[in-house]
């Protein structure tokens, strides 16, 4: 398939999502968010505002956090997409996920997967963040329940767990 001309009808696109190559046939107007949820069944990524304000749809594209509702899925062809479903290590939760459970870092939980993806990205760039680093790095993720203090506590705990995996015991 030539990639220089797409749509407006459906076109085949190969995406790499959580390390797996998947082929979907989609219109170019489809956002990464809608393709993840409706074509691939990856509903961990949430649709909140659908206009790049809330962060419920946060995913990693080539290692950087983006709002999946602002990105066209076809523009992700040839790039690596990671969603909350791809964070788990073998049968275990990611340390950030564990810390969110331990610290009660959510109430309704709708923003949680986006919060976790942003936190994972932060810790990959800065393994020992201070409170202010966390507040700045996660400023694009809203929590309408106001669980922020516990979210910050969870990220701090995850950083400790990553540094000394046995510290929890």
């Amino acid at each position: 398939m030539s990639l220089d001309w797409l749509g407006p009808g459906r076109v085949p696109v190969t995406l790499n999502v959580n390390g797996r190559e998947v082929e979907v046939t989609i219109e170019p107007r489809r956002t990464l968010l809608s393709v993840l949820r409706e074509e691939l069944g990856l509903t961990g990524t949430k649709e909140g505002c659908d206009e790049g304000n809330c962060g419920a749809c946060t995913v990693l594209v080539d290692g950087r956090t983006v709002y999946a509702c602002l990105v066209l899925a076809v523009d992700c062809s040839g790039r690596c997409v990671r969603t909350v479903e791809g964070l788990r290590r073998a049968e275990n939760l990611h340390p950030v996920q564990e810390a969110f459970v331990d610290q009660d870092a959510f109430q309704c939980g709708f923003c949680t997967s986006g919060q976790i993806v942003s936190a994972v990205s932060l810790l990959e760039q800065n393994p020992k963040p201070h409170r202010g680093d966390i507040e700045r790095a996660m400023a694009g993720n809203l929590c309408r329940c106001g669980a922020y203090p516990n979210i910050v506590a969870a990220v701090l705990e995850a950083a400790r767990l990553e540094e000394a995996p046995d510290a929890k015991d």
């Binding site: 990639l3 220089d4 001309w5 797409l6 749509g7 407006p8 219109e27 170019p28 107007r29 489809r30 956002t31 809608s34 066209l72 076809v74």
Partner: peptide, 10 residues
């Protein structure tokens, strides 16, 4: 859903 458009990929 976004309105329909053609997308060119130079």
């Amino acid at each position: 859903m976004l309105p329909s458009f053609e997308l060119l990929m130079p």
